[in-house]
Amino acid sequence: MITVTNLTKSFGDKVAVDDLSFTVREGAVTGFLGPNGSGKSTTMRLMLGLDRPSSGSVLINGKPFHDANWPLREVGALLEASSIHPGRSAYNHLRSLAAANGIPKSRVDEVLYTVGLTEPAKKLAGGFSLGMGQRLGIAAALLGDPEVLLFDEPVNGLDPEGIVWVRTFLRSLAAEGRTVFVSSHLMAEMAMTADYLVVIGHGKLKADTTVEQFIAQYTTEKVKVMSPELDRLADLLTSGGHQLVKVDDALFIEETPSALIGELAAQHGIVLHELSPQLASLEEAFMELTSDDVEFHGQSEPSK
C-alpha cells in the first residue's frame, strides 16, 4: 500500500505537485492519470525519494522508501524510459541492480525471460528500440519480486501486442495481491487496465475513484437519431423539453431514453433510420475534467 499525504513539490515558483493526498491499494491496479506535465512523473519520483518533497510525505507499506531494508525487493519501479546506460548490456544493467540488493544472478535470467529479452540481453542497451527499452525497465522493476510496483507510462513506445501484454501483465501482478500504480495520459488505456483511478491536473487531485464510478459520473448518455423528417422530430423533442444538438444529418438527444424517442416518433408517424444510444468517450470526460489544467493549450483557431 502507498499512502500519499499532503504531498507538495515546488521547483522555484512553479508548483509541480500541489497538496496531493490519496492511497494506492494492494491487490489492484491503480491508474494515475493526468495530461502531460501535470506532475505524474514528479509524484513518482517523490515516491522513490529521488526528489525531496517541499512538504508532505509518501509512505510505502507504512514507511518512507528511504528506510527500505531491501529497496528493490520492496518497490519495483519503471521510471521515465531513459534510466539505462546505453553503453551497458541489458544483462549487465540488471546484474548490477541485482547485486545492489543481494538478488541472485538466476533471477536476472528469469526476468529477462519474463519480458522476452533473453535473446538481445547481451547487446548494448543503447541499440534497443523504445519498446525494448520499456521491457528492460519492466524487467528491472520485477527483479526483486516486489510487493509494490510503480510504472511510469509503461506502454509508451510499445506496439499493439506489447500494449496488450503490459495490460495483461499489470492485471496479473495485481491478482497476485501486489500494489500496482501505473501512470498514463491515455484515459482509454487506463479504463481497460485499472480498477481505481487517481486523476490529477496541474499537480492537484481531480478524482480518486473506481473506474466504474468515474465512467458513471463523467460520461453522459446521448441518443443518435437519423430520420428523413429530422426537423419535425427536432421540433417535437424541443417542445417536449429535451436537450438536443443537430450534427449533419443526425440529432443527438441528451439524457433521454431511446425508447421514449422511438415511441414519440411512432405516435407522429415519423420514419426513423437510426436510433442508437451513444456513450460519450472517456477521453472526452478526462479532457473536460482536466481541461483547465492542460499545461499547453493547443490553439484550434488563430487568436484574433
Binding site: 522513490l48 528493490l72 518497490v75 534510466s83 539505462i84 546506460h85 544493467h93
Partner: peptide, 18 residues
C-alpha cells in the same frame, strides 16, 4: 556524470536510496 547523463542514476538510487 555518465550516470546523470543517461539517467541511470535513478535506477541506482532506486536500488540503494542511501
Amino acid at each position: 556524470s555518465s550516470e546523470y547523463g543517461t539517467g541511470s542514476i535513478k535506477a541506482t538510487f532506486a536500488a540503494i536510496p542511501h
